[in-house]
Amino acid sequence: RLFSVYAETLRRFAAGAQEADLRCFERALLQELGYGLMLDTDADGVTVEGTAHYGYEIERGPVRLAGPGDSLLAVSGRTLLDLAREDFSDPRSLAEAKQLMRTLIGHYTGGRPLASRRIFRELQEL
């Protein structure tokens, strides 16, 4: 499945894909490697609310916060729900998803950059 998603993402980038396609690939990458994200429910199993604020704790999932920015990986509930639906029409969701995915992938790769990022960047430059 990962190679299928990778090939489809390359096709989309060759056709002028957007940053949202990269977020979808990153989500699929983590899922296929066994690091799927909890996005619809928080770490306690409570349904994520779009108007709430969360901190994403690696290996645990989203934890509801009292307010925005109370965590290093702070994201809105809407961002989590948009990421689950792969809907990045909201610029804030796209920006927060980018930061979240970069941090999670960095954690699971030990800080090593993905070759796919370089490939996608080169395709965009063409």
Rank of each mutant, 00 (worst) to 15 (best):
R1E: 10
L2D: 00
L2V: 03
S4G: 10
V5D: 01
A7S: 10
E8T: 04
T9Y: 00
L10V: 12
L10Y: 04
L10D: 00
R11W: 01
R11S: 07
R12Q: 12
R12K: 14
G16S: 04
Q18L: 14
E19R: 13
E19W: 12
E19F: 01
A20L: 02
A20E: 13
D21M: 00
D21N: 03
F25L: 06
E26Y: 12
E26H: 13
L29D: 00
L29P: 00
L30K: 07
L30A: 11
L30M: 12
Q31C: 07
Q31T: 15
Q31K: 15
E32P: 00
L33H: 10
Y35N: 15
G36R: 14
G36W: 01
M38K: 14
T41F: 11
D42R: 06
D42N: 14
A43Y: 01
D44A: 15
G45D: 02
V46C: 07
V46M: 09
V46T: 15
V48Y: 01
E49Y: 01
E49Q: 13
T51F: 13
A52W: 03
H53K: 02
Y54S: 02
Y54D: 01
E57N: 05
E59P: 06
R60P: 00
G61P: 08
V63H: 02
R64N: 06
R64Y: 03
L65D: 05
L65T: 08
G67V: 05
P68I: 09
G69D: 06
D70P: 03
S71M: 08
S71G: 03
L72P: 11
L72H: 10
A74V: 10
S76P: 01
S76M: 05
G77Q: 04
R78V: 08
E86T: 13
D87H: 09
S89P: 02
D90G: 09
P91Y: 08
L94S: 10
E96S: 04
A97P: 07
A97T: 15
K98I: 11
Q99N: 08
L100S: 08
L100N: 03
M101T: 08
R102M: 13
R102T: 13
L104S: 04
L104T: 09
L104E: 01
I105D: 04
H107K: 12
Y108L: 06
T109F: 11
G111C: 05
G111K: 09
R112L: 15
R112N: 11
L114W: 07
L114Y: 04
A115M: 12
R118F: 06
R118W: 03
R118Q: 13
I119N: 02
F120Y: 08
F120L: 12
E122M: 14
E122L: 15
L123F: 03
L123W: 06
Q124H: 11
E125T: 14
E125R: 14
